[in-house]
Design a protein around this nucleic acid. Sequence first.
DNA 1: GTATTTTGTTTAGCGTCGGCACAAAGTCAG
DNA 2: CTGACTTTGTGCCGACGCTAAACAAAATAC
Lengths: 399, 399
Amino acid sequence: MERGRGALGPALELVHTGRAPTRAVLTAELGVTRATAGAVAAELEALGLIRVDARPTAPAGSQGRPSHRLSVAPDGPVVLAAQIHADGYRAALVGLGGTVVATAPGCMTVPADPSRIIDAVVEAGAGLLRSSGRRCLGAGLAVPSAVAEPDGTALNPLHLSWPAGAPVHELFTEALAKSGVDDPAGVPVPGVAGNDVNLAALAEHRHGAGRGARHLLCVATGHRGVGGALVLDGRVHSGSSGLALEVGHLTVNPAGLPCHCGSRGCLDVETDTLAFLTAAGRTPGPEVSLLQQSRDLLRTEYADPSVRAAAELIVDRLGLGLAGLVNILNPDRILLGGLHRELLEADPERLRAVVADRSLWGRSGSVPILACTLDFNSLIGAAEAAWQPVLDDPLAALA
Amino acid sequence: MERGRGALGPALELVHTGRAPTRAVLTAELGVTRATAGAVAAELEALGLIRVDARPTAPAGSQGRPSHRLSVAPDGPVVLAAQIHADGYRAALVGLGGTVVATAPGCMTVPADPSRIIDAVVEAGAGLLRSSGRRCLGAGLAVPSAVAEPDGTALNPLHLSWPAGAPVHELFTEALAKSGVDDPAGVPVPGVAGNDVNLAALAEHRHGAGRGARHLLCVATGHRGVGGALVLDGRVHSGSSGLALEVGHLTVNPAGLPCHCGSRGCLDVETDTLAFLTAAGRTPGPEVSLLQQSRDLLRTEYADPSVRAAAELIVDRLGLGLAGLVNILNPDRILLGGLHRELLEADPERLRAVVADRSLWGRSGSVPILACTLDFNSLIGAAEAAWQPVLDDPLAALA
DNA sequence: GTATTTTGTTTAGCGTCGGCACAAAGTCAG
DNA sequence: CTGACTTTGTGCCGACGCTAAACAAAATAC
């Protein structure tokens, strides 16, 4: 009777990621008949998740009856997205399609108590939610730490000076309940916490520079340290306990700086913002973030030989690390974020050449290395994680 | 009308991997009703793939009606499995469940011409097939080289002194057609070629020491060089072009031996059989394989301090490499093959300690490191790859 | 204005699975 | 040995979710 129940999730994901701009494309992508695709689109529209344009806009130069355009419902439900980083936090409401509906920037002083900051960021999000009046279907939180898979504890929140093993998931869930972020029946929405780089990679894969990649490797330097993430066939690979892609301790300079891990010359200490500023002979000031200082330096003083030399040094070491990852993971695309993105854009060819030269099969077919394109990709990734249950089973998630 | 078509493949895989010893277990594992599971079992039996015992053997100490035992059909179809390594080749017929039905060891001199040796190993398999009289549903070939994903060419068959880019898949398919390995309708069976370590990992995951692991890392040293493989959720991760897990060129000794890759101190040259024999002060002889010489040395002269010191040196370097892989991949189990397996068994604690010490989170929860348990695991893995279409869709594969 | 192409909708029908009732085959208690 | 209980196997029915096919609609091409 009700047609297209099984295809509901896949169909929503296609619209969500922009791979189904029209009903005709949806039909082809789902591999079902027009009748089923029509029923699916109608049902998703009835659920208030997508919009089916009444008047189809005819694409120029094509024969036949034009297909109805599909898009995400403009006033549909949202999810609460939250991010905590070394300099503060940020909350947002994000709709389907990765559209940021509202944002609340957070304070720049991060208390060492995880409970207080998580409460604060959730409360900021809850405020946005109250003033928007929209329905909230889930919540996601991005933190700069590996998050253990089953129990949701932060394993290495070094850059937040939190205690290792902080129960991030639990605190997030409690904060959501406290702030009254619940569905119409009064049940608190489910909260999910994850590593910021993992979530950024997920967001880039769905809405940014990673679209269409099968095996996407993402490496990013935020303020301190280097994070990595891997998306395989659309799913984040976080390892058996959430610790995968801890790429910061690849050796890229055997005689280099000592690292807190006990080794020397790790990617973490050789290619992060502090390494760059130091190599450029600058003493970092306390007023703005290290990332901002590095970015400013690269954009305004790249002509300065010492700046350029520093950039090239970091690029060479980054290339060595990326080549090692390429040999192990063989991704079909690499995305760079944070300082690494800036370095790529300052001199794209040098990094690509280093990676091709040091990876075993780089000469035959080199891996595309691109810059992340989404602003706030970790935040949007947190939203993606929150949307996941809805994409898996829209009917169950809305019930 | 016909019930249980959708579950046919999953059900066969459960019986194949020994996870469904009885019909009752099959029902639970599939998550379907008893009626559906019964229909599935009946259909698979009718297809000649499994056997359903008529008289159930009552397991002691359990109430209720005993369930019918399920097993692989003892005289069911087979696949042709072939392996080429540095010292020769081997062909076999393998049934469901990873049971080797017949084997033909090959000559010990490997011609440099890929076409001739592939013809020879396929002909050996075809001979087995003719004398067995059983139906053949597919063929798999394991080679000591990365195999490119779409086109099936051998990318680095260094240890066979084959030309890079040898069209292994194409030659295999041609050889199968030439030898008359075909189905009842006269159509040649499909052939699939893969990297030997990848296939060994697949076999260990399904029938050996890797059973039940979610993220399985496998590292093995055969005769020369080091190979790696990763099985994620039951599927081999071979990267976007078949080059993943080229672990041989992780740096484990920055001041070490030069490697043909241009770097120094690679896992490949620091932990293979030649490195071990050299470290032990032995000059390898030409009569038996380096692996055999290493194995003999370890087993008979481990009391000799020079042998023990050499083993510990190699173990320390191997541990460093494994720790690097653990930081990136975060597997929940590691299997070692070839010389590395021997080294593990000579002193299991040392390797585990090194890996735990050098991996970032080893102290909290260390990864189990085990020895491969299957004889001829690459060969059985080749068979697994050949069985895959049957496991995916038994009806289509038998048609 | 008519033919052609492509898309959307309606209806009928079928394949696959769950639910349920019942039968079958064992254990356990007395 | 008998009866109660537990667990497994089977037959029947209906629901669900899809395809197929015919038809209708909306555009372009000539």
